[in-house]
């Protein structure tokens, strides 16, 4: 990885350079929280922001996307073009970049690469920025507090300057043309290490650090805990809506008003939606809140691991705040912690 240092005062020039060729999405104030929205000037950006309400997922995997248009009479596809904005996702935190990397594992798999996802991803640059944890952050427990790939640039704020990791030629070209850069010094590196340690120590101590989570997910699969947790579920699917790694979707046809033509869409779905695992004829393989909540947690903290060797959950804490019933991976970690103490 190539590293360069840039004065903080250079940053607006980088944003201006991006805006010439790309739609720039960045964290902006939105009501009481911060949201990733298109910006028209550097001044709108909130650089030091707490985790946003929803994630960057919508820019790669829109909640609703047309797969193709069809003609009913011809019983055939008539068009499948996609309008895509070349974008820079600016100011992504490490957890969110790790989340996009997790989506890559699903949508860019070798057997069935998803052409829609690929088209969005190919038109999108990712610029990360370091962060300090809020009280619901637990990315460090799931190995998602640092990001080693999947970005074009990553900015580490060193006070009056940025240490920048450069991940792509495209970004290097823009950065070098727009900004004054210099080599990193030992002092820059020392400051980087100091700030990294500071971040590590800033995570909430109330969230237990549990070892062997995937194994525990299996071992306690039949525990009564899941009935209690699932019994609280409102089936509102807010958890998956805000989750940066919930990617499940439904495929549905919608006719145009005249009934002659229509479009097939993919619509983001949620395994906590009651009918999600229902089959034709009506049998529902996850009939209860217990089954559904447990399945969601299982996939986040075990299932994805057994396929891809890492947690699907990146510990961003969005669901912790979105769930009105206090259902979240943190509750699962606390349950394991209690089990550990009870046995001792």
């Amino acid at each position: 990885m190539l590293y360069r240092v840039m004065d903080a005062s250079e940053l607006p020039k980088l944003i201006d350079a991006f805006m010439e060729r790309y739609e720039v999405i960045a964290p902006v104030q939105s009501g009481r929280s911060v949201a990733f929205e298109p910006i028209s000037s550097f001044d709108e950006i909130v650089l030091d922001y707490p985790t946003t309400l929803t994630s960057l997922k919508k820019y790669i995997l829109p909640p609703r996307e047309t797969l193709f248009e069809f003609s009913v009479d011809d019983a055939d596809v008539t068009d499948y073009t996609l309008e895509i904005a070349p974008r820079v996702l600016f100011g992504a935190h490490a957890c969110d970049i790790n989340a996009l990397n997790n989506l890559d594992l699903v949508f860019e798999d070798a057997r069935y690469p998803d052409p829609y996802f690929e088209a969005h991803r190919a038109a999108t640059m990712v610029v990360g920025i370091n962060c300090s944890p809020s009280e619901t952050c637990f990315c460090h427990l799931l190995d998602a507090d640092e990001v080693r790939s999947g970005y074009d640039l990553f900015l580490q704020d060193l006070g009056d300057r940025y240490l920048i990791s450069i991940g792509s030629v495209e970004a290097a070209n823009i950065l070098e043309a727009a900004c004054e850069l210099r080599e990193a010094t030992d002092e820059d590196r020392r400051e980087f290490r100091r700030l990294t340690r500071e971040r590590q120590e800033a995570f909430s101590a109330d969230i237990p650090d549990i070892q062997e989570i995937p194994m525990l997910m299996d071992a306690f699969h039949k525990d009564e805990f899941w009935a209690e947790l699932g019994g609280r579920c409102l089936s509102c699917t807010a958890c998956s809506a805000v989750c940066p790694t919930c990617y499940c979707f439904d495929i549905a046809d919608t006719l145009d008003e005249d009934g002659k033509t229509g479009r097939r869409e993919r619509i983001l779905d949620a395994c906590t939606s009651p009918q999600f695992a229902q089959v034709a004829g009506g049998h529902n393989f996850r009939e209860t809140g217990r089954d559904r909540v447990r399945h969601r947690m299982y996939h986040k903290l075990n299932g994805f691991n057994s396929k891809h060797g890492r947690y699907l959950c990146v510990g961003c804490g969005r669901c912790v705040r979105a769930c009105k019933a206090d259902i979240s991976p943190i509750e699962v970690l606390r349950f394991f912690e209690r089990k550990g103490t009870e046995d001792a």
Partner: peptide, 30 residues
């Protein structure tokens, strides 16, 4: 949509999930 469903059939599934998920998709706080 419902009229067309009645006329032509559809295997679209009507979720019984509640509103908050859609609200979050709109980037709304609570």
């Amino acid at each position: 949509e419902v009229l067309q469903h009645a006329l032509y059939g559809s295997n679209i599934y009507r979720r019984s999930s509640t509103l908050c998920g859609e609200c979050k998709n709109n980037e709304r706080g609570c």
